Computed example of a mutant assay.
Amino acid sequence: MTGPVEYRTDARPSAEAYIDVVRRSGLGERLPVDDPALMQAALDASDIVVTAWDGDRLVGFLRAVTDFALICYLQELGVDAARQRDGIGLELQREMRALLGPRCKIRVSEAPGAAGYYGRHGYSRHDRSWELLPGEPLV
């Protein structure tokens, strides 16, 4: 049985709670869930963390880095697999967007398991991104 969801921007979860819901969301295979200190550092350095709670159970999350005026990079968006398709992910994004300035763009890299999700919710494809992986030299 699932209850009503409460969305919060004022309290960040512990790394343990965050890792738990990351695993339940299906994103655990692409994030360093075996390194709680690194996950905590990512949470602490995020400009926006929006969470969705069913009572005291974390069921959804959004983490973003932004200047609040021009650009916002949505780093992670995930919902407990048992609560997916309940509109939680969309509401997490609405909560994030409410914190941004009126001209602020949102950018996101689509996870392999989320093919088509963002396009269905109004995002346009952007293919002008580049990536430099850890340990790769700048030349």
Rank of each mutant, 00 (worst) to 15 (best):
R107K: 14
L58S: 07
G113W: 14
F68D: 04
W53P: 13
P134A: 03
G89W: 13
Q40T: 01
K105F: 13
E29T: 09
V50I: 12
P102C: 10
I48S: 02
S109D: 13
G116Q: 11
S129C: 14
A17M: 11
V108M: 07
L92A: 11
P4D: 03
R128K: 09
R23F: 04
G28Q: 07
E136F: 15
D54A: 05
A64T: 00
L92H: 05
I88Y: 11
D80R: 01
R63P: 08
R12I: 00
D35Q: 13
L132P: 09
R12E: 06
P13K: 00
V65A: 09
M39L: 13
R125F: 04
L92N: 07
T2V: 03
A114Q: 13
S129V: 10
P36L: 04
L99K: 10
Y118Q: 00
S25W: 10
A111I: 08
S109V: 15
V65Q: 06
E131C: 02
R30H: 15
D56R: 08
R12L: 04
T51F: 11
Y73L: 10
G119Y: 01
L133N: 11
G28P: 09
T2C: 05
A64L: 02
R12V: 04
R24A: 15
G60K: 00
P32E: 08
D67P: 11
Y73D: 06
R120V: 00
Y123I: 00
L27V: 09
A82Y: 10
R63M: 07
R63I: 01
R107E: 15
V50C: 14
G3F: 03
D10V: 04
L43E: 05
E29H: 10
L132C: 15
L62P: 07
P36V: 01
R12S: 06
R120M: 06
D54E: 15
D54H: 04
L70C: 14
Q84K: 07
A41K: 11
A52I: 03
Y73H: 10
C72K: 01
L90Y: 02
L74Q: 07
M39A: 10
D54Q: 10
V22W: 08
R107S: 14
A41S: 12
I88L: 07
R8L: 12
Q84V: 04
A82R: 07
D80K: 01
R85K: 12
C72D: 08
G113I: 08
G87V: 04
A37M: 08
D44S: 12
Y118K: 00
E76F: 06
P32T: 00
G113L: 12
F61Y: 14
L99D: 05
A98S: 14
D86I: 01
A69M: 10
A82Q: 13
L100A: 03
G55Q: 10
V59S: 14
A81L: 10
A98F: 02
V22F: 09
G89D: 09
G26S: 05
V59K: 04
Q93A: 03
M96K: 02
P112K: 03
F68H: 12
D34W: 05
V50Q: 05
M1Q: 06
R57V: 11
K105E: 13
V21Q: 05
W130G: 12
Y117D: 05
D10T: 14
L27N: 12
A45Q: 15
A81M: 10
G119K: 02
D47W: 09
L70D: 12
L77K: 02
L90K: 12
F68I: 00
F68A: 01
G113D: 11
Q93M: 15
G89Q: 06
E131A: 08
E91Y: 14
G135N: 11
